[in-house]
Each structure stands twice: as structure tokens, then as C-alpha cells.
Simulated assay, not measured.
Amino acid sequence: MTESQDPRALAQQAADTIAELTGVERHDIALTLGSGWGKAADVIGETVAVVPAEQVPGFHTSGVPGHSGTLRSIRLANGKHALIIGARTHLYEGKGVRAVVHGVRTAAAAGAGIMILTNGAGGVDPAFRAGEAVLISDHLNLTATSPLEGANFTDLTDLYTPRLRDIARSAEPSLQEGVYVQLPGPHYETPAEIHYLRTIGGQIVGMSTTLEAIAAREAGMEILGFSLITNPAAGMGDPLSHEEVLEEGRAAEPHLAELLKRVVALL
């Protein structure tokens, strides 16, 4: 994706390609599956087609271990179709903000009215334990950028749709909520930075999601966000490593998959 390309036109081109390759004209909901959430693609419904990301305009093979690098079309029990985006682009990969939100814009162009965003993240609030899934109630975008261009003044009140959060809690009443913070990465935070985030109201910290959520709101989608707490944040436990994130994600996968299966069945 280059700066000269119209991002919405590219998203429509990608959506048309997905429809052609999967044989599914319209997808009703979309899910971006982050670290620990990938197994959900195997249980929420019947897989219709799996498409390597590089076959779809604007997508790239995932550069992050733990991400599938594919797009998957799934037929749900109610006859609707879900688009699974396993090829998330992160801001720290250097491909630009347009590439980061291309998956969300493609999902909207494919017909999805609901965007489910998931991630693996650090727990800033000590009330959240490693291995726990937490609903995102709001966010702090500390990336110093936005996916919106020009005089596009999009309201972000109730960005993470209360109706969908209520549905998620009906599927699993024990779910806690928290404010997610996105930083650019790829380095983890210092203990001083975590103290700062806690002071300004952050409860979960990661390197994705907020820019995607903003783009989804601009596209008119409802948004549901989940974080898997993979570790206590810096200064609250042992030194951090991506291997720890992957290990915690693998351990939590069965529970997270069942959680998303129950939530999606209620949408």
C-alpha cells in the first residue's frame, strides 16, 4: 500500500477479491484474532475458505509470531458469515497507518457491521491476572497518530459498543472491563511508563487495536474489544518477553475460543 492509493478504494478491491476467492458475497461480522485468540477460528462455525493474506490486495503475510497470516470465511450456525482476519499489521512494522487499519476497512467493505478486535496485552491494573480475558471499555491512543485523514471529526464516545459489551457479559458474567492503552512498540514499556499509564487511567497496555477501533467507528461499525492478559506489566513481575506472551496465549486458547464462540452465537 502506498500513500498515493485511496485506502477505501483498496479496501473495496480487497473485499471484492475475498468475495471471489471465498464464494461468499457478504460477511456479516469480522474478527481480528490477536495473540492467544486464534483457536476461535476453529470453533465458531464451519470454515468455508481460507485465503493466504498475500493473495488479497493490501494485505501482507503476518510479521509477528503467533498470527496466522490468513483470511478465513466461516459460516455461522445462524447462516450468517464471519470474516476472520489473521493477518494483522502492527504500527511498529513500519508499513504505515493505512496498512494497520486496512483489515478493518476491508471488513466494512465486505459488509460487516460488527468488528471484534482481540489482542494479547499486559496487565497494568493488578486486579487483572495473567490468562484472563478482559473486555475493553475505552482506550487511550498514545501512538501520536490517527487513521483518519483531513477534516474528519469522528466522535469516539462509547467507541466500544455498550450493547455488545452487555452481550459479552451475558455470555460470561465474570468478565471484567478495563481501559486499553496502545503504545507504538515494539519495545515493552519501562516501569516508569507503566506507573504513568496507571496514573492517567490505563489498565491494559499493548501495541494494537486503538487505531483499528477508530477506523471501524469511522466506517460505521459496532466494535467489541477483548484483551488477553498475558503478563503483569513492567515493574509488576518478571522481565517481559514475547515468548511469555505466546506461552500464556497457548495456555488460554481453549477458554478464549469458547468465550468467542458463545459471544458470536448471541450476535
Score class of each variant (00 low, 15 high):
residue 106 T to A: 06
residue 106 T to Q: 00
residue 107 A to S: 14
residue 108 A to N: 06
residue 109 A to P: 00
residue 110 A to F: 02
residue 110 A to D: 02
residue 111 G to W: 06
residue 111 G to M: 03
residue 111 G to R: 06
residue 112 A to S: 14
residue 113 G to C: 00
residue 113 G to M: 00
residue 114 I to S: 04
residue 116 I to N: 14
residue 116 I to H: 11
residue 117 L to F: 08
residue 117 L to Y: 11
residue 118 T to D: 04
residue 119 N to M: 00
residue 120 G to L: 05
residue 121 A to P: 00
residue 122 G to T: 03
residue 123 G to M: 02
residue 123 G to T: 01
residue 123 G to F: 05
residue 123 G to L: 04
residue 124 V to L: 13
residue 124 V to R: 05
residue 124 V to T: 03
residue 125 D to R: 14
residue 125 D to N: 13
residue 126 P to E: 13
residue 126 P to S: 13
residue 129 R to C: 07
residue 130 A to L: 01
residue 130 A to C: 08
residue 131 G to M: 04
residue 133 A to S: 12
residue 133 A to L: 06
residue 134 V to Q: 01
residue 134 V to C: 02
residue 135 L to T: 09
residue 136 I to P: 04
residue 136 I to W: 11
residue 137 S to N: 10
residue 139 H to C: 15
residue 139 H to G: 11
residue 141 N to R: 15
residue 141 N to A: 09
residue 142 L to S: 10
residue 142 L to I: 05
residue 143 T to D: 14
residue 143 T to F: 13
residue 143 T to S: 07
residue 144 A to Q: 15
residue 144 A to V: 10
residue 145 T to N: 10
residue 145 T to R: 14
residue 146 S to N: 11
residue 146 S to C: 12
residue 146 S to H: 10
residue 147 P to I: 09
residue 148 L to C: 13
residue 151 A to H: 14
residue 152 N to W: 15
residue 153 F to I: 09
residue 158 D to Y: 14
residue 158 D to W: 13
residue 158 D to N: 15
residue 159 L to I: 08
residue 160 Y to A: 14
residue 160 Y to P: 09
residue 161 T to V: 06
residue 162 P to H: 11
residue 163 R to Q: 11
residue 163 R to P: 00
residue 164 L to E: 13
residue 165 R to D: 05
residue 165 R to A: 13
residue 167 I to K: 11
residue 168 A to C: 08
residue 168 A to T: 07
residue 169 R to K: 14
residue 169 R to Y: 02
residue 170 S to G: 07
residue 171 A to I: 02
residue 171 A to K: 03
residue 171 A to L: 04
residue 171 A to F: 01
residue 171 A to N: 06
residue 172 E to N: 13
residue 172 E to V: 00
residue 174 S to L: 03
residue 175 L to T: 02
residue 175 L to W: 12
residue 177 E to S: 13
residue 177 E to G: 13
residue 178 G to C: 06
residue 178 G to T: 01
residue 179 V to H: 11
residue 179 V to W: 06
residue 179 V to N: 07
residue 179 V to F: 12
residue 182 Q to H: 07
residue 182 Q to K: 04
residue 183 L to H: 03
residue 186 P to K: 09
residue 188 Y to E: 04
residue 188 Y to R: 04
residue 190 T to Q: 04
residue 190 T to S: 13
residue 190 T to E: 07
residue 191 P to N: 05
residue 192 A to E: 06
residue 192 A to L: 05
residue 193 E to W: 03
residue 193 E to N: 02
residue 193 E to H: 08
residue 193 E to A: 03
